[in-house]
């Protein structure tokens, strides 16, 4: 076995089959090569959120947060997708959740995002586990310097003014500290709760 053979030649040299020069017709001899063309693609889609998300979004307009429960395990998912991954089955019950919870983990983002010009870095995005839910979801921690956010910190939803409410998750502007004692977290590997707590 000649172990070094593949590296014997210049690894960046064009493969033999691709190294033959291309002969252009004379008419194209002086033409400037085209390296790229811009071909915009526009396609319109009418998305449907599905049954579970539709319920969730409608409730948002009333400043209510709906989760859905897995019939087999009791876990509560939010935002609901209509399915329990634990059971491979549809969720069995709609559950109204509190608009309070705790920060499960977070990051401090120091780069702007294209679609949220309103968000000025640095800002803190966090997984919020609502009281009554088994899993966390993403939200912004606001009304607090990002450096002061802690894992376990208790937070509550800050809603848009009533007159601006829509059927949208954007109704929650962010999550602010409640000032309550921190949730005690002992297992840093696992997220959320195996058992849903009482809201």
């Amino acid at each position: 076995m000649s172990a070094d053979r593949p590296e014997a030649r210049d690894p960046l040299a064009a493969p033999a089959a691709l190294s033959a020069p291309v002969t252009l017709p004379e008419a194209l001899a002086g033409a400037e090569p085209v390296e790229s063309v811009c071909t915009p693609i526009r396609m319109a889609y009418t998305y449907t959120p599905g049954r579970a998300l539709s319920r969730y979004l409608r409730a948002m307009a009333d400043k209510r947060i709906l989760g859905e429960r897995c019939g087999a395990t009791g876990q509560v998912f939010v935002p609901p997708r209509g399915v329990s991954p634990l059971a491979g089955a549809a969720t069995s019950e709609v559950v109204e959740l509190a608009d309070t919870g705790y920060v499960e983990s977070f990051n401090i983002t120091r780069v702007p995002i294209e679609r949220r010009p309103d968000l000025k870095p640095p800002y803190c995005s966090a997984w919020i586990v609502l009281d009554g839910a088994s899993v966390g979801f993403l939200g912004l921690v606001i009304n607090l310097a990002p450096e002061e956010v802690r894992i376990g910190m208790r937070v509550r939803a800050v809603w848009k003014p009533d007159e601006e409410l829509e059927t949208s998750a954007a109704n929650i502007l962010g999550w602010e500290p409640t000032g309550e004692p921190d949730e005690v977290i002992t297992d840093y590997e696992r997220i959320g709760r195996i058992e849903a707590s009482d809201p």
Partner: peptide, 19 residues
Amino acid sequence: FATSVNAGAGGYFSPIIRR
């Protein structure tokens, strides 16, 4: 129906790294 608060995969994975 989705809100965007994360810039890319870094925003998703950094809380896990923090854990």
